[in-house]
Nucleic acid binder design. Structure first.
Length: 740
DNA sequence: ACGTAGCATGGGC
DNA sequence: CGCCCATGCTACG
């Protein structure tokens, strides 16, 4: 262990051991502490002569491949002074800097960040094999092999994070991570690992390295050049054939990127992620509908305050198939080939992707041969889709978390979007609160934010056509208007609802959970936080919403740009179209013959699902969770069919999870909120509908889910009180039976 | 009978 | 016209 500062310490140099009065900071130890050195040793270290002076007789010296300078590679002291070349050998930092424009090694990770145990056998990999992993060609960048979770063959190493290659930046403040090399392809799986020395002749494998990255938030830009996108390969020949020596990037790209990674990025920076030139180019090569639009805003908000930024990569509007229970998300080929690792085998590899909450999801990234081409799919997305309550028409966004470089997956509800994002063709399905309409208590007015049919609409119409349906004589324009919707999360809705005035309540017990069913639709409160009137207060220091608050605010609604709030009966028109037509997939039905829509409606009279059985009626009334009588005044209700569907889902978990097949996707989240839920105001909960009783550590039980909802509701009320919002707020009457 | 995996098909761009 | 991709189809467990 490195010594901590203190007069009683002695010099960390074992050959010196001089008592320290004013210790000088030496190298960074694995503990994260710096070695305390005496003045002389400290000077030697700072001069880069420490190993030359004290370790001359030690083993582990190697020569820089470029300049021939000898470096004590087997020593932690010199750890930051060299890089491991992909082709073998080392290069001193000076040469590396010249060629890579790289910076020294990062902070040494704490020993606790390493996985202990036998290091995996290191195998060399041919340049060909490696290139098959790293990919080649004019792609923005390629992910490093550690993107691939190695857990399949190494269950003990399952907790991995994926790191993505990214543009190297020219930023002297960044540090360089030692080089790495891919591991041998084992079977069909690329168990590629970066290896690095710990300075003590130990090699750490990929997983350790990922922990290393994760723990230290090392800019991925500091990755060896083989990770670097927009790379221009420099190949050097040798006796065994061509191998990749290194990849270089145009400095201009690095410069651009460097703007994006300064310490403590400003809010502006977070909100406007500058892209590397090549990425921008690649992005423009994508079809418009796949171009990333707003993941930055969304995630920046969630990751705000940290040094983390997001580089949007691509996005996709979920089709009915994508959002169905098959659990396969078809990836646009171009996007997959551009932004995801190249795969040579159809079975592909598991990818670890973080969601917006930092939860890791392992999805199988693979392809199907198709007409001499490929169809790229992400398998096992159902838990994620369900957890995020995504439906057809919603948009899944992919981005890269920087500086960690992890692949992140966000989403955007089709019904809610950023007003600032008007340029995107999806915007015409977006909802903006129309303050005046709310104030007046008028029914919501639908107003398209732009003229063109949205991609969602197009897809929905396409889906409808494909299914042989018609538009029921409605014009597209009419359909557009129908598509206007308000879809909010369960928690959000919970916080906005009050019992209906005619409070005829029937308490229904479903799977041990009490629900209140009302004959009349509940009343929706409009928190002032969503009106322009309160915009200032929302953003004012006085009532600055915490990130947790913001998480559960109606997402995507930019309070600076409220224009209108559109609503229609249909909660998810695309899902309606896609599933309502009945043929989307039989797997979309939770029970045979029961066409449960994502919005919870349309159960057949013969439906035998729990909810229908419990209520003994084909169309259940609006329900709300049963609350403590003391909370009636601030109770929340379920106003929407969407929420009702949620409850159905939650309710059914108790039965369904028993037989639920474990999908490829798994969450590795150790959700601290499980312990601190009572303390976490507005702590967002990803309720994994794929939960299984035998995997309690990874998922919530039904009661947990309900408890969470209650807690969220309480938190909502607390938040509203904090915001000095009227509990009654502005209400508006619901029409029909669905509350909206 | 049902769920799933993989391939085939065909509409749309 | 060729490719992409949504989803239909079917063999299989």
């Amino acid at each position: 262990m490195a010594s901590s500062s203190g007069a009683s310490k002695v010099c960390f140099n074992s050959t010196c051991n001089q008592a320290l009065e004013l210790p000088r900071r030496g190298w960074l130890c694995r503990t994260g502490d710096f070695a305390d050195l005496c003045d002389r040793c400290g000077s030697d270290f700072e001069d880069g002569k420490f190993c030359d002076t004290y370790h001359l007789n030690a083993s582990g010296w190697r020569c820089c491949e470029s300049c021939g300078k000898q470096i004590h590679c087997g020593c932690i002291v010199s750890f930051h002074m060299f890089i491991l070349l992909d082709a073998g050998g080392i290069e001193c930092l000076k040469c590396a800097k010249t060629e890579y424009i790289l910076t020294p090694n990062p902070t040494w990770p704490s020993a606790s960040h390493f996985l202990h145990g036998p290091a995996e056998r290191i195998n060399d990999i041919s340049a060909k094999s490696w290139r098959s992993i790293a990919g080649s060609g004019p792609v923005p960048w390629r992910q490093g092999p550690n993107l691939f979770s190695a857990f399949k063959g190494h269950p003990e190493l399952q907790v991995t994070s994926c790191s993505l290659g990214q543009s190297t930046r020219i930023d002297p403040s960044e540090r360089f991570v030692n080089s790495w090399r891919p591991q041998e392809m084992t079977g069909n799986k690329a168990l590629a690992s970066r290896m690095h020395y710990d300075g003590q002749n130990n090699l750490f494998n990929d997983v350790s390295y990922q922990s290393f990255f994760h723990a230290n938030a090392i800019p991925l830009s500091s990755l060896p050049a083989t990770f670097v996108p927009h790379c221009q390969k420099t190949e050097t020949g040798n006796a065994s054939g061509i191998h990749v020596k290194r990849l270089c990037i145009p400095p201009s790209i690095g410069k651009q990127c460097s703007n994006n990674n300064g310490p403590g990025p400003s809010v502006e920076k977070q909100a406007h992620i500058p892209k590397a030139q090549g990425e921008t180019q690649a992005s423009h090569q994508l079809l418009p509908r796949y171009r990333p639009q707003s993941i930055d805003q969304e995630i920046q908000r969630l990751y705000g305050g940290s040094n983390t930024t997001i580089t949007p990569l691509f996005e996709k509007v979920l089709s009915a198939s994508d959002a169905g229970k098959i659990g396969r998300l078809v990836l646009p080929k171009k996007c997959a080939e551009t932004y995801l690792p190249s795969i040579s085998e159809p079975e592909g590899y598991p990818l670890v992707i973080k969601d917006l909450k930092g939860k890791d999801w392992v999805l199988q990234y693979r392809f199907w041969p198709n007409n001499n081409s490929r169809m790229y799919v992400l398998e096992g997305v159902t838990p994620y889709i369900q957890s995020m309550q995504l439906q057809a028409g919603d948009t899944v966004t992919f981005g890269r978390l920087e500086p960690e470089g992890k692949l992140v997956m966000g989403f955007r509800k089709a019904s809610l979007a950023y007003p600032s994002d008007k340029s995107h063709e999806l915007t015409n399905t977006r909802i903006f609160a129309h303050e005046e309409s709310l104030k007046d208590g008028n029914a919501f007015k639908s107003r398209k934010s732009d003229g063109a049919l949205s991609e969602v609409d197009k897809i929905s119409i396409r889906a409808k056509r494909k299914k042989g349906g018609n538009m029921n004589g409605k014009s597209l324009k009419h359909k557009e208007e129908e598509i206007c919707q308000l879809s909010v999360t369960l928690e959000q809705v919970q916080g906005l609802l009050q019992p209906p005035l005619a409070n005829t309540c029937m308490v229904v017990l479903i799977d041990g959970v009490e629900f209140e069913a009302f004959q009349e639709a509940p009343i929706i409160r409009i928190p002032k936080a969503f009106s322009t009137e309160n915009v200032g207060s929302l953003c004012s220091p006085k009532v600055e919403p915490t990130p947790e608050h913001q998480e559960h605010m109606l997402p995507m609604i930019d309070h600076e740009n409220f224009e209108s709030l559109k609503t229609m009966e249909s909660v998810d028109p695309l899902a309606d179209l896609a599933v309502h037509d009945g043929k989307a997939s039989r797997q979309d039905c939770h029970k045979p013959g029961c066409m449960q829509l994502p919005n919870g409606t349309n159960h057949k009279s013969t439906c035998t699902c729990n909810v229908c059985l419990a209520l003994n009626r084909p169309t259940p009334p609006p329900m709300m969770m049963h609350h403590d009588p003391e909370q009636v005044g601030t109770s929340v209700q379920n106003p929407s069919r969407s929420m009702y569907a949620d409850i159905i889902c939650y309710t059914q978990m108790g039965n369904s999870n028993k037989n639920h097949k474990t999908g490829p996707a798994r969450s590795f989240e150790n959700d601290p909120s499980r312990e601190n839920i009572s303390d976490s105001t507005f702590k967002s909960q990803n309720i994994d509908l794929n939960m299984q009783p035998e995997r309690e550590e990874e998922s919530y039980s039904v009661s947990d889910a309900m408890g969470i909802m209650s807690l969220v509701q309480e938190s909502t009320q607390r938040y509203i009180k904090q915001q000095k919002l009227s509990v009654n707020g502005i209400t508006y009457g619901a029409h029909k039976n669905h509350g909206l």
